[in-house]
Amino acid sequence: MGELTEKQKAQALKTAKSLSNDKLRDMYTKMNHVRAFEDKVAYFFSRGMVHGTTHLYSGEEATAIGALANLDDEDLMTSTHRGHGHTIGKGIDLKKMMAELLGKESGYCRGKGGSMHIADLTRGNLGANGIVGGGIPIATGAGITLKLRNEGRVVVCFFGDGALNEGTFHESVNLASIWDLPVIYICENNQYGMSFSAKKSMNVDDLSVRAKAYGIPGVTVDGNDIFAVYEAVKKAKKHALKTGPYFIVSETYRFMGHSKSDANKYRSKEEIAEWKDRDPIPRMRAILVETGQFTDSELDAIEEQCKQDIEEAVKFAENSADPSVDSILDDVFAPSN
């Protein structure tokens, strides 16, 4: 069950070999950063050490990291309420990210945003979003800026299967289509919108057929195969720059509940176990070893380093000050001349 198909494996090996060791190291590191970050956050929540809620990305790493491996800092991205993977994938200071989760002054949003609102405009990260489908028009508008400037940049717009039934998806993809905007729309089908399954909420099996309604290409990829995602987005990026928007459905699964309140009553242990069998991290690891680009001990060292990086981020966050209440009124409005 957990194995890649023969064809998929052959392609994964080919893709891995086409990438430099530095690139692969970066991708594998980010995969493990996400996992370690989420493990730590889950631990904090289970202990009641942070307030609010959070939505963990564990299990979906290949989608964010595989997609964003195609982007440069100048390219743009919008993310979702389940945004830690995208945020790390786009490139982030883990310390400032963890500090934001803990609501600290040194966090990305100075403690005002938390898990659902991390943004880093210096790296083209236009922000996570607390509203399902909320980022789709924003990505589309960013696409207008890029189209008008014609600088060869793209926007990647992430959203979940739940957002496919929001009006913003329809309005935005249509707009991008008629204006040929350089936007890659990536639906992470993690099979559930909170508790309601994608199968129950839509009467189509292959969600990528929705692209037809907008006259743009649509494909479905195994979202737990980082190389498949990488190749799909690589192709999509070329198309976006030359022709216009592209729609990708990345089939994946969240290992954890929707949020911290989730008792997982709507899905079976067997189903969760099946998907854990397709964990994208061991899958990527197997390919890297098989091509001979990395040894097991090298990959062990990367994993260990990632855990340490997260520990250091925690240390930084814990040692950071809370924001002063004096800052509460800051930044409602930007200064204007």
Partner: peptide
């Protein structure tokens, strides 16, 4: 956006 992002937008 501006407030949520801590003034970075």
């Amino acid at each position: 956006m501006r407030y949520m992002f801590g003034g970075h937008a």
